[in-house]
Design a protein around this nucleic acid. Structure first.
Length: 551
RNA sequence: GCGCUCGUAGCUCAGCGGAUAGAGCAACGGACUUCUAAUCCGUCGGUCGUAGGUUCGAAUCCUACCGGGCGCGCCA
């Protein structure tokens, strides 16, 4: 169901008429959470100049006129702020309503959209490395969140499973006898061996090029060998996803190869619309507003001079498919920041070609890099890229439980603004204090421990102590936090909220004995604890962070 | 060169138009016969890169500059 108790909007609704009466026209009450009260409105300050009156005077008049009966106390404060304090009974009643709701007071969206989220996207025949971590974690958190809010989410794992490297890889497999059953570790060495041969052996290079042609023209042997590489890689990816607690499954793979038959059609459509220009044999689109190093228009190369297709063509084909066939209303790409220009160009061309109609939005959700302690891109001491599987191994080894190690990595990634770079630091992410995964997991485990010992269940909540009040208010902030996180594709807003909640609970836990309290108080505090546990659990689930019953 | 992005406490980060800029770590000092002290409380610590501008009000918006990162025609 979802029954919202959103004090900001409730207060706004009550203040708006009073403000309008004083100002003579509608005014945004601008209600915000406040450090000086539960909520505040700064609207009178904005009106002072216009009305030629002192802001305190305006605030006083608004306070007098506003009908806040049964909702809040209002006082004038400071230079002309309106401080709003919710009544304790209303707080308790709001908690009751929220607690009685399966969805913790968060209604499913009234306007569900079909949202296609493109994330993770590793390369076949290559091991996943830290470079795939952020896309996988952030994309999954967004997928979980949007889905829970009632949207129809389609996860797409845009595998790198096609293109010239596969001529080389398949040819190398032929050289090795074709039937060998390689592990993915073998495949990493396999890839490097193939690469070396490609770079040093002219004969092999020629065969590799012919192999690409054979593969792309459907030669059965080539396809079979290629398919083995793909299947084996997919098994490995799924294993990593399972360890990471990521919701990408076998049905979500949609590699670049899937669009190969669409590419000639796509080129024909673009040509027919006059959107392509021949440039030294390559077919390029030149969307408006993009310039290169020399100041000339920047090309989006759709078909290379050798007749092959690059990633621009595949990305265009993917849009065409996601909108035309999957019926997407919204396309999200959780892909590193460096590809920003590329996607802007692809979107521009797709718009012009009509594959992205007006009602459909496409967003590139970029993210920063993971840096080492030296402030540079995270690498091993030897300077190699760090394999994801090994990173997960280390996380598990360093933590007291696998879920804590994995949760620490994921939370570290989700707790900061995704656009910024972040410094990877085991000690910090595994710390039990601060804005970390372990801190949230610990808070949750403490609550579960309470219930194991309680013997009785929670009862009606009454709010009296300051720590109870603070916790109650924080609990009721779940819905706005979630809305902010989903609306702007910023998981760190939800993460920050969960940390605030865990802190509010910890303070409550220190100051307000639960099990030793007298009957009614005990039941009430168990009620607060239970709602906290449910909120933490839900929020952590939406971020993809596992909860533990005990630590 | 052009474009994007980021410069907030010693460190790692929140805050992104409103009241004395907040956390965690680090440093120092407190709280466990008491529900998980993997916790909590306190102290110390900031010309919010610089300079202008807009505004009643700017870390937040605009402009310029400085500094870091990234991108800019056949890799994805």
């Amino acid at each position: 169901m979802g029954l919202i108790v959103n004090f900001e909007s409730l207060l706004s609704d009550r203040l708006a008429p009073a403000l309008e009466a004083v100002a003579g026209h509608p005014v945004d009450p601008a209600v915000r959470a406040s450090p000086h009260a539960d909520f505040q409105s700064g609207a009178p300050l904005a009106l002072a100049r216009e009305l030629g009156r002192a802001p305190q005077e305006i605030a006083a008049e608004v306070a007098t006129r506003a009908d806040l009966a049964g909702l809040a106390e209002i006082t004038v404060s400071g230079p002309g702020f309106l401080n709003l304090t919710i009544g304790d009974d209303l707080l308790a009643e709001s908690l009751r309503l929220t607690g009685a709701d399966q969805r913790l007071g968060v209604p499913a969206t009234a306007a569900p959209e079909r949202i296609v989220i493109d994330y993770s996207g590793p390369n076949v025949a290559k091991e996943m490395h830290v470079g795939h971590l952020r896309s996988t974690i952030i994309g999954d958190a967004l997928a979980r969140t949007l889905e829970w809010l009632g949207h129809d989410v389609v996860r797409v794992n845009h595998l790198g499973d096609w293109g010239t490297p596969f001529g080389m890889l398949v040819e190398h497999l032929v050289d090795l006898g074709g039937a060998a059953d390689h592990s993915i570790r073998d495949l990493t060495a396999f890839y490097q061996d193939a690469r070396v041969k490609f770079d040093t052996d002219d004969d092999f290079r020629t065969r590799a090029r012919l192999r690409v042609v054979a593969l792309q023209s459907g030669d059965p042997l080539s396809r079979d060998l290629w398919q083995r590489l793909v299947a084996q890689s997919e098994r490995y990816f799924l294993d990593v996803y399972q360890r990471l607690g990521v919701t990408l499954g076998p049905d979500d793979f949609a590699g670049e190869s899937r669009y190969q038959d669409d590419l000639p059609v796509l080129v024909a459509e673009l040509l027919a619309q006059g959107l392509l220009t021949d440039s030294d044999g390559a077919l390029c689109a030149f969307p408006d507003g993009f310039t290169g190093r020399d100041g000339d228009a920047l090309p989006l190369i759709v078909r290379k001079a050798d007749g092959g297709f690059g990633y621009a063509a595949t990305d265009l084909a993917a849009i065409r498919h996601r909108v035309g066939t999957l019926g997407a209303d919204r396309l999200l790409y959780v892909v590193g920041a460096p590809q920003r220009t590329h996607f802007e160009m692809v979107f521009a061309v797709a718009r012009k070609a009509g594959w992205l109609p007006g009602g459909v939005t496409a967003e590139h959700l970029g993210f920063g890099s993971i840096l080492g302690a030296d402030g540079k891109m995270l690498k091993t001491r030897a300077g190699d890229t760090i394999k994801l599987a090994e990173l997960l191994d280390e996380a598990v080894a360093r933590a007291t439980a696998p879920a804590i190690g994995i949760g620490a990595i994921k939370y570290a990634d989700l707790s900061g603004d995704r656009r910024g770079d972040y410094v990877f630091d085991w000690d910090r992410m595994l710390a039990s204090t601060g804005n970390t995964g372990p801190y949230l997991q610990y808070a949750y485990a403490r609550i579960r421990s309470l219930f194991r010992k309680a013997g009785t269940g929670p009862g009606p909540v009454t709010v009296t102590e300051p720590a109870e009040r603070a916790l109650a208010l924080t609990l009721l902030g779940f819905e706005p936090a979630l809305r902010a996180a989903a609306g702007q594709a910023e998981p760190h807003r939800l993460a920050g909220y969960l940390h605030d909640l865990a802190v509010a609970f910890s303070v409550f836990y220190e100051r307000c004995p639960v099990l030793r309290a007298a009957d009614d108080v005990r039941a009430s505090r168990l009620g607060l604890a239970e709602l906290t546990a449910r909120t933490l659990h839900t929020g952590m689930f939406l971020l993809g962070i596992e909860t533990l019953e005990e630590i």
